[in-house]
Nucleic acid binder design. Structure first.
Lengths: 235, 235
DNA sequence: ACCTGAACACCGTTCAAGT
DNA sequence: ACCTGAACACCGTTCAAGT
């Protein structure tokens, strides 16, 4: 789906920033973060490295641009639902799934704080907070907590999946979780009471459900925080 | 403070895994993530790259070892405080400050999920949850949410600080925040109502305080969640 | 204005050869 | 058992030279 491409020229194979970004996304999706290389890019685009540098300032700029393109598409595809709490949950899940599908986005977002992609997410997470009546003084800390949690968990989840794919022969995530759970279940309960205790629960946990449970935890915290909120948090 | 060093040999300059890790930490602290190089390491240790590879399997293993050493020291230095909520807040702040002092730890932790350093943190965050009476079925999702938030925010904060240090001539974090706040304040309120609205608050925000506010949000959520909790989260 | 592709200054990792 | 250091297969980025 060439959304922005082919504006001035009809030919699809002319070199343009949009086309470079699209190919970059394809490479990142196929070969992971290490797959984005100016040499691979040159080959795929049938040109030299210098040609790419004419359209793009650096690799990190290209990575941010690729990230922003995917984030923008994901948010655009998301209908604005009515109830604020539902809107936040839906948005959180959409971001989780987006990062699960494009694992490189997790670290790309971390490397570009305050840039376009982050601001897009901030805005969409923030609007429902206005509807919830979060007072002005608490708006920034609240979105920040929410966004940090969402991007932190989703990024960690994606990193896990990638590591599982690399370390195991192909047994993948299930085997990775199982190996960890087994290791934890064999820890000394005197030294590691908590980790030893959750090993069994961990073995059968559901990433997406736990992610959403954390979102609900934060939403519950927002709901239980008194509106004036000048001093410490109550309860 | 050579804690583990000089066990078998009295000489401090003999090549050992511990000494390699210590020098790696020093390089990471001084020159950032890119500063850890087998060439820089060789020079500092007055040896060849091959010698280091005899003690250490790969760069990523070395990074994880360096990360674990700092995490272990930080947690060891932390007295176990009584009240569970206080313990979690104290621990969270200690981790925040640790990552602020060693910014490379943020991404190192992400790259080694389920490894030693992560388990150490899991255990210490989890023990107070037992004291709070969080039921077994909710223990994993709850620590996971807490840990993801803490490491996510702290890592993001460190990445911000590093980026501010790189992009600005030396004006640093304050100028970086100011530039962002100014950019946000000039956004179109029709398209970016939320981001536009928080620009002023953002300009004068306090990273550490906001971080702690998020921890309190999650703690409030834990406190307000009913103990049985079989279905959806109430409220 | 836009593209080419060789060249530069780096990387992590390996490995024959030493002691 | 442990160390040396050259060599290998890569990187991102630059830049004279082309069209």
């Amino acid at each position: 789906m060439p959304r922005n491409a082919a504006r001035t020229s009809r030919r699809d194979d002319s070199l343009s920033r949009d086309r470079i970004v699209d190919v970059a996304i394809a490479l990142l999706d196929r070969d992971g973060e290490d797959g984005l290389t100016f040499r691979a890019l040159s080959e795929e685009l049938a040109t030299g490295a210098g040609a790419i540098y004419w359209h793009v300032a650096s690799k990190s700029e290209l990575l941010t641009a690729a990230c922003d393109a995917v984030v923008a598409r994901t948010l655009d595809a998301l209908a604005a639902s009515g109830e604020p709490t539902t809107a936040i949950r839906t948005l959180a899940l959409a971001l989780f799934d987006m990062i699960d599908r494009h694992p490189w986005i997790g670290s790309a977002l971390t490397q570009a704080p305050g840039q376009q992609p982050t601001v897009r997410i901030l805005e969409r997470l923030g609007q429902p907070l206005l509807a919830l009546g979060v007072p002005i003084k608490r708006q920034w800390p609240t979105v920040f907590a929410l966004m940090s949690y969402v991007l932190g968990v989703a990024g960690q989840n994606a990193a896990n999946a990638q590591l599982a794919r690399r370390t195991q022969g192909g047994a993948g995530r299930a085997a990775f979780i199982d190996a960890l759970a087994t290791a934890w279940s064999q820890l000394d309960p005197a030294a590691w009471p908590f980790t030893r205790g959750i090993a069994a629960q961990f073995r059968t946990h559901d990433d997406r459900a736990d992610f959403l449970a954390g979102v609900d935890l934060i939403l519950a915290g927002i709901a239980s925080t008194p509106v004036p909120a000048r001093g410490r948090v109550a309860r």
